[in-house]
Design a binder for these strands. Structure first.
Lengths: 253, 253
DNA sequence: AGTATTTGTTCATGCAGACCGAACGAATTC
DNA sequence: GAATTCGTTCGGTCTGCATGAACAAATACT
């Protein structure tokens, strides 16, 4: 069910592999792509021609690039999620109040996807951008969402992705994760103490409407500033409150 | 060169047609897609399986949807354009000053693509969103960009897309368009008087650095408010000034 | 409840067309 | 000006895509 090699359209798959390579390489020529992917030049060329004709790829001189066409599909996919249109003003407010980075995330294919982020006055530069995907078990918002998903979904997600370690603090033990999820359920919010990125702490609260997890709100900042009562009381209160406002707005929309 | 039917990967093309149908239909099932596109059910099913395995499509029950994976490629493509990272604060300011809708656009494949927009206090609801594509000859920002592109590019674009009429005011005569472009070059900004959308007027200025057109800035609002000296003097001044600031910031970046 | 209908999914087959390597031509480098 | 490197074109081979029919599962109707 996870990887059914039988029913697959190989040509589509190579097209997307080429697109992803274009992204990783920040644009490239035919030969560079061919050697990078270990495909024949002519195959790469054929796919690029097709993608270009459909305006998914641009070409300047002999350099090919990912086209803005994807913005159309991406923005559309984002807006289809109700929270993406409702939450931003609240996320902005949260960023302003906390002076840190505030984020909106949702779950897709068992991973967390950033939908929106707002930069507070003191916010540090982050490695994130809209569309970025992260493992759920390595983040506060991931744990916030997992805690409110049905058990079978949680099992399926962990089976599919495992619990890869990305920092020394990443939770890699399934039982320990489950115990923490129980804790998250009780207190209503989740912590992330350098579990995804060293030096970064984070507080997150889930957005739950009618027992359905619509996403999560998080505030993240450098460990040095995320301490004391600010970290244990005030930040969680602000984060949960923001999530609640979004929940209420989602209900009447 | 424009439509070379010979070198084409048909499977990739059908995959993208299915994706586009998913967008237009706001998500759909296999049968609905098959009848909409006039493809066999099994073909649609195969492609959806492949797209889903690569996380470009989601499935809830029997409903398939465009996935957020496209946000990753879309945001990436947006950010690769330098203006997209430099311009937003200036566009926000422009929206605040004019209380109308302010936009940032670029050209791709001979059409205008919205990269960013900011809503002023009185701004009316628009049909636009990031990623939306419009014909250049039907808009103020399109004319602003065309006016500063090399002649051969302009010819190529008009040959490719023609001058389709979208409102009674749309310019459909090539010579008249050329004459207006000359005017735009002289005054430094372009008007759009209900040429793309009835009831909507618009002012636009190009962003040109080193003789290269990076994009255009525009302000659009209801005809009723776009009148008098505000429309003939103040709005153009604000728009051109915003474009100039973006040009300067682009130079030193 | 039971039947009928519509849905998503699986399967086997034939032939279109995707993949490939090599040859070409254009551009750039030394 | 020679030599290398690039993008592009070409035609044959054999893969694997498209296809319709059969299956299963869910829904609608009586």
């Amino acid at each position: 069910m996870t990887t059914d090699e039988s029913t697959t359209v190989r040509a589509t798959e190579t097209s997307f592999r080429i697109l992803d390579a274009l992204r990783v390489l920040d644009g490239a020529g035919v030969t560079e792509l061919a050697s990078h992917l270990d495909f024949p030049k002519s195959t790469v060329h054929n796919h690029l021609q097709t993608l270009r004709r459909n305006e998914y790829v641009t070409k300047h001189g002999s350099q090919y690039d990912v086209g803005l066409r994807f913005l159309q599909l991406g923005e559309y996919a984002r807006d289809r999620r109700g929270v993406a249109t409702i939450a931003p003003p609240e996320i902005d407010k949260l960023a302003e109040e906390t002076r840190e980075m505030a984020n909106l995330l949702v779950e897709e294919h068992g991973r967390g996807v950033f939908l929106y982020r707002a930069k507070g006055a003191d916010a540090v530069h982050m490695d994130t951008h809209a569309g970025k995907r992260v493992y759920l078990h390595t983040t506060g918002f991931g744990k916030a969402m997992l805690a409110h998903l049905p058990d079978e979904r949680v099992e399926a997600i962990l089976d599919r992705h495992g619990l890869p370690r990305v920092t020394p603090n990443t939770i890699t033990d399934r039982d320990r994760l489950m115990a923490e999820l129980e804790e998250v359920r009780q207190q209503g919010y989740a912590y992330d103490d350098e579990e995804r990125l060293e030096g970064l702490r984070c507080i997150a609260a889930p957005i739950v409407v009618d027992n359905e997890v619509l996403g999560a709100v998080s505030v993240s900042g450098p460990k040095s500033r995320m301490t004391g009562e600010w970290y244990t009381d005030e930040l969680p209160a602000l984060t949960v409150s923001t999530a609640n406002v979004i929940e209420i707005n989602s209900t009447y929309a």
